[in-house]
Design a protein around this nucleic acid. Structure first.
Length: 277
DNA sequence: TCCATTTGACCAGG
DNA sequence: CCTGGTCAAATGGA
């Protein structure tokens, strides 16, 4: 199983996604739209399956992107301008637009910006805007990539406890299968030469009135990256039978049965991120 | 007036 | 002493 095969599938999906986006001004019941949606769905399923195959048991060598915990960060209760109490990095994704970086369904408030040594662009510091009211400790850092200024690297820390995420079309996983540890959540899939595969040029693929929506296809680039990362997405949580193209239902059972998805969870190991360059 | 952003200062860790 | 993360006063927009 080679990474190039996965890249090819992803690029194919990207092309199909573009075609589908181009169909948005047409009736959703159109055969062309349904056909394209089926293709994208199948391609995505294949890509996830391939990614799963690529996943190896944890290796001893760590990813260069691994953010290690400070050895001294454990045992201090003095919490002023802290680095001590910082939780470790939860998740890292790349997106193709600043709006995608911030619009992930949560409400963020910027609290700082720093020039980072060796980086061309400053790093922005954001925290959940419900920190004061609901005590939510989630934070994120957004930094423009040096190598590709069209990419934004997002680092998430802490979990949202505010429960105020607004509508998302990619369902959250049930807690019992959201078992990925922080060690396995450091993931990027939209990166390097792959960009802009599976990142959407429009915010979502939905009907003009949100009345018709393909759940697996809607979302920003960050959401797509999150989906593909497998960190918080499961196949079983994507009820394809809910795809609704107006009066007509698409029979995805046949489509689904042709895929090789066996497990509900796709996890990437420590060899991520792949180098697509 | 309220609220979010900006920005220089402060602090801890290395 | 340098760097990165956070604070908080100043600022600006709605």
């Amino acid at each position: 199983m080679e990474i190039n095969l996965l890249i090819n599938v992803l690029n194919q999906g990207n092309e199909q996604m573009r075609e589908l986006e181009a169909q948005l001004d047409q009736p959703y019941s159109s055969e062309a739209c349904k056909s394209l949606a089926s293709q994208v769905q199948a391609t995505l399923a294949t890509a996830i399956s391939m990614a799963k195959l690529l996943n190896q048991p944890a290796k001893t060598s760590e990813s260069p992107l691994l953010v290690s915990e400070s050895p001294r960060s454990e045992n201090s209760e003095n919490v002023f301008k802290k680095r001590k109490t910082m939780t470790r990095l939860n998740k890292q994704v790349r997106v193709c637009s600043p709006s995608s970086a911030l619009d992930d369904g949560y409400s963020w408030r910027k609290y700082g910006q720093k020039e980072i040594l060796g980086s061309k662009f400053p790093r922005g510091y954001y925290r959940c805007s419900h920190r004061d009211t609901l005590g939510c400790q989630a934070t994120k850092q957004v930094q423009r990539s040096d190598n590709d200024s069209s990419l934004y690297e997002i680092s998430l820390r802490g979990d949202h406890t505010c429960g105020t995420r607004h509508s998302r079309r990619i369902p959250a996983p049930p807690s019992e299968v959201h078992s990925t540890s922080p060690e396995t959540e450091r993931i990027m899939i939209v990166s390097g030469g792959l960009q802009p595969s599976f990142s959407l040029t429009s915010p979502s693929i939905c009907g003009p009135n949100n009345d018709i929506c393909a759940p697996n296809l809607c979302g920003s680039g960050s959401e797509m990256a999150e989906m593909l990362s497998g960190a918080s997405w499961t196949m079983s949580e994507s009820p394809i039978e809910n795809w609704d193209f107006g009066r007509e239902k698409v029979d995805f059972d046949t489509l689904w049965s042709s895929t090789t998805i066996e497990s509900t969870m796709v996890e990437f190991g420590t060899e991520f991120p792949f180098d697509f360059s």
